[in-house]
Design a protein around this nucleic acid. Sequence first.
DNA 1: CGGGACGTTGACGCCCGTCAAGACATGTGG
DNA 2: CCACATGTCTTGACGGGCGTCAACGTCCCG
Lengths: 242, 242
Amino acid sequence: MPTATEHRAKNPLRKRLEVLDDKAVAQLIEIARPVNLPASQSIIIEGDPADSVYGVRRGIASVFKLLPDGRRQITGFLYPGDFLGVTFNMNAIYGYSAEAVTDCAFHAWPRPALERLFDKAPGVRRLFLSQIADELTEAQDRMLMLAHRSVEERVATFLLTMARRQAGATGLRIEIVEIPMRWADIADYLGTTAETASRTLSAFRDRGVIRTGTRGEIGILDWPTLEAIAAGIMPHEAGIYR
Amino acid sequence: MPTATEHRAKNPLRKRLEVLDDKAVAQLIEIARPVNLPASQSIIIEGDPADSVYGVRRGIASVFKLLPDGRRQITGFLYPGDFLGVTFNMNAIYGYSAEAVTDCAFHAWPRPALERLFDKAPGVRRLFLSQIADELTEAQDRMLMLAHRSVEERVATFLLTMARRQAGATGLRIEIVEIPMRWADIADYLGTTAETASRTLSAFRDRGVIRTGTRGEIGILDWPTLEAIAAGIMPHEAGIYR
DNA sequence: CGGGACGTTGACGCCCGTCAAGACATGTGG
DNA sequence: CCACATGTCTTGACGGGCGTCAACGTCCCG
């Protein structure tokens, strides 16, 4: 049974919009304002009035929450086809912050125009609905992950998710996985630290599971082992520290 | 800014349904089938076809996911007024399991009838929508919690949430908090173990923050300290082990 | 070339998960 | 009413995973 993340991985923009008829898509594009942001720029700030909804066109964005002491939990990475800032609060306040991980292009929809479109084109409402539902399922999966799985399992799962996303519908076990985000971001996403994440990668490398070297790339050498680690099979055979 | 849990705590059944007009409420009740379950009986099983949506009328239910090795993460407790099994998946499969924590009474709505009602009464759709959105916000809050906060902070936060829920809109700092669920459940909810949760309670007791004794009840003696612990202020003054 | 951002590696300590045993309450049958 | 079984909570002992602090290496950009 695929997780929500895996499900989402197979649903880029085209897939997501194909539930809409051509007219609805045209209307959506029409009321959109284009927004471009360089990496690590802020898009949405938690607590601000939620007057726009954003759709990722290009690049990767992160959604996160902050603790008063400055610590950060990235609750998700968003890819082309994903939406940002879809809230149904009555007070219409963003419930989280978001920023561009890589250089990004967005559609920005003013909320009033979007809600008018909701009434004209029910398919559009259903589209945003399914996004929320997907996010909820993914959030629940990740709760399980954060609470009950070791950092090794989390990192392995992350690598596999990235690999499968890039393989797309082909299902191939690709060799080189591109990791566009910084490891500090990944650590915040996985609920650990950059140091521990790095150590875990090194351990995988030393066990011959992956290959490192080029910045922003990981080579997967041993899929079965990586999958076994992610699944939690493989009883602490070799710790993080050699 | 209140968390989603706190928000939900102030929204029992009446509050939640008051966004509907009388006719919609009547229609909802009309198509509902009553279901009663004793404590620890299963309501929904992850992976089963999602042919019903449930509304909690009385009692407390837990929503959870299981790992293959049997470990469990409770992703939320549901109270009267909350809904269960609202999925917008195209395949219409429950994404989680649920069971009664205490003796429970539910409304059960067959999905087809409910979707017909969605079209007749748009307020009903919006009601279920806002539930999903609430759950998503809560899920994101809890990710932060599980990933970055100590067990002490989590237990303190849980006690405060329960206390505030019982205080309702009064905002009073009530003395005796009823805890209807077993600590094993609470531990699974907080992403820890029953042992550690128990130890944490004992530490609070020894520091004079709470009073224990009667099963299913906790007395809160020192609100400011408990709030400080929950907020993460209070640098490891006295560990769990005396 | 110098400075800053990012990743790597080491050393250290403690939080908390695990195993185990005991305390206490509740239910069940004789 | 008592003996016993069962489920829940408590407490102890122990060890490991991983967070923290610190130093170093590497790459990039002015």
